[in-house]
Structure formats: C-alpha cells, structure tokens
Simulated scan of single mutants.
Amino acid sequence: MKIMRPMGVVGIAACAALVLAACGSDPASNNSGNQNSGAPAPSGTANVECGGKSPLSAEGSSAQKNAIDIFSLKYQAKCSGQQVNYNPSGSGAGVKQFNAKLVDFAGSDSPLKDGEEATAAKTRCAGNDAWNLPLVVGPVAIAYKLQGVDKLTLTPEVAAKIFNGGIKKWNDPAIKAVKGNEGLNLPDKDIQVVSRSDESGTTDNFQKYLKAAAKGAWTQGDGKQFKGGVGNGAAGSNGVAQAVKTADGAITYVEASFAKDGLTAAQLDSGSGGVALTSETVAKSLDSASFKKEGSKDLALDLDKIYASNTPGAYPLLLTTYEIVCSKYDNPDIAKAVKAFLTVAATDGQQPLSEKGYVPIPQSLQTKVLDSIKAIA
C-alpha cells in the first residue's frame, strides 16, 4: 500500500468542519437543539470545580480536534487561566502516549481494547482502571468522487468487496445491481481505494462495521490499521479527504463533515432500502445502542448491534469519540483539572456543536457521562 504525505490538520478557525458533534440545549433558551434527532438533548450547564493542573496535555483522534478546540474555549471561559493542549496525532498514537504517561488523557474513536492495551492503561493509572467516556457521536461516510454520479447506494457486502479488492471497477455488475443504482452511468473506471495510513479509530470502526454487516464478505478483521490490502494510504481525516478530491474514481471512509466540497457520501442499504447520511437517520440507529460493561463507570458502547441492524430509515455506520482517562490519578491536580474540563465539555461545550447541526448525545447518555466524571479521583 502506498503512503501519501500527511496533510495539515484543520485548526480552531475551522470548527464548523467538525465531524463528530454532540448537541445540547440551554434550558434558559427553550431550544431543544436538533429537534429532529429523535433523542432528547442534554442540559447545557453544570457546576464545575475549577483549578488543578494547567495546561492539561492530551493527544489522539484527529476527528475530534475541532470539538476539543470548542471545549477548550468553553473551559477557559468557565475556568479562567485553565488550558488544554491537544495534539491530533490519531487515536492509536493518543492511546500509546496516554499509556506511556506522556499525556493526561487521550482521545480515541474506539475504546481501549481488552488485553494488552487495557492492561497497559491500568498500569499507567497506578493499578486503577482506565475509563472510556463518550462525548460525541457521529457518522462515518463512505465518500467518493466520480464524475457524473452524485447519488450512489452501497450495500455492506458491496462496500466490503470494494475495500478488499473484490470489486475493482465502478461499472461492476454488483454495484449496478444495488437497488437505487438503476440507470446510473457508472463508468468503466478503476476504483481507487484510499485508506488511513496511520492508526485510526475511524478505521477500526469502519472495519468493525464491515465485519458485522457484510455477511462474510469482509474476512480481513478489524483494528486501527487498515487491513483491506488495496489502494493508497493518507494520514488523518483531512488527508484521506484531500486524496479523494484529487482523483476521480476514488473512494474512502471518513468522518461525515469531511465528505463535502467535491466529495459525495454514498447511501447505505442494510436490507431495508438506501438510507442517506443525516442527523435524523444516525439518531435512529442510536436506539439500539448498549454498553459493553453494563453498570460500570466505563462507558464503552457496544456498536455491533447498530452495525448489523437493518432498521428502516437508520444509518448504521457511526463511531463514538471517547476521552480515555484514569478512574484514579496519582496526581490530584491532574484529576481536578480533567474533571473540570470534561464536565464543561459534556455540558457548556455541547451547545456550540448543536448549532452546527450534528448528532446529539441523548440526555440519558450525558447523565451517565457526568456520573462517571464525578467518580474520577
């Protein structure tokens, strides 16, 4: 697989490009956020005990970089003089830096894996468990650039075969046969797959989706490294989006807000007809969400049920951005600042994201997140 030169990361001035966003509402505003989301919006404020370490250090998911920028501004407004330095190096790098005790918390598009990764995190936390706390939930697009084709429907099976090389041409009969693609002028052109070259939670979630939904068409497994074995690689969400924009006939998987300005997001047909990627269709998928460890303060979501579902009108390809933290820190100043920052992010930090029209965190999930944050010691 060829590796493309990494692209720059979008900065704070591009907050509108955030891909994964939760929305909330300030009770005083009488604004319910995304009213078509199908889930109640979380409340917008909470008591925050400011202080502790400044600046906090964090690293990880590039998909949530713009969210962290917004959260940081709200944190500074709530807690004067407090700052967070966040390096959007990718989920894999963030977890490694956290486990090496080089940062105070990590951002990841997938939770810590049981086994070596979780064990290393527990060691880093001085024998205490590390928790995965979801702050934003949002969709992943299968984004493409193909001249003359502005609406395309893919089944999980067809998507799997594109990303593992089983389908190589845009006019392949399997693509033409998908309901909704009738009459499309699909060209005799090579499909150019673009994947993440760096370790990525987006890659992990996308491959988990294919594994769960593609009914045996994806046998390559999952993980933060792309295992399809075809195409070119580019670093970061912006990197893969830019790579596809420059190549007619290219396709990738990327967080939804990067699927714009020349890219088109494919509709997904899980068995009940093609479903476009919207906040409403993603919210409908959240109805079947559950936790991997019910009753625990570790809030890693079990998304397999969503990925494998065929609920009519539901868009199942989504991911959760987690902040990975110690349940108990060996430095109380770090614990105090982490709790303050995450409390602001889960409350005041939500409203600006809702104004961008993204998927809301349900009230019930926000309540669980705040309960876990309170328990950090």
Rank of each mutant, 00 (worst) to 15 (best):
M7Y: 12
G11L: 10
I12F: 11
G24P: 10
N36F: 15
A41N: 08
P42H: 02
P42V: 04
A46K: 11
N47C: 04
N47R: 15
E49Q: 14
P55I: 07
S57G: 10
G60V: 00
A63I: 12
F71K: 02
S72W: 01
A77H: 09
C79I: 02
S80Q: 14
Q83G: 06
N85P: 05
N85S: 14
Y86M: 08
V95M: 11
A100K: 06
G107A: 11
S108W: 09
S108Y: 05
D109H: 12
D114K: 15
D114R: 14
C125A: 02
A126R: 03
W131D: 01
N132F: 06
L133N: 06
P134Y: 09
V137K: 02
I142H: 03
Y144K: 06
L154C: 05
T155W: 02
P156W: 03
V158G: 05
I167A: 00
A177G: 05
K179Q: 15
L186G: 05
R196H: 15
D198P: 02
D204G: 07
Q207W: 09
A213L: 09
D222P: 03
F226C: 05
V230L: 07
V240Q: 10
A241V: 01
D248W: 04
L263M: 10
S272A: 15
A276Q: 02
S290Q: 12
F291K: 03
D302Q: 13
D304I: 10
I306S: 11
Y307P: 11
P312T: 00
A314L: 07
L319A: 07
L319F: 13
V325E: 00
C326K: 01
I334K: 04
K336E: 04
A345V: 07
Q351E: 13
V359D: 10
V359T: 12
L365Q: 13
D371K: 09
A377W: 00
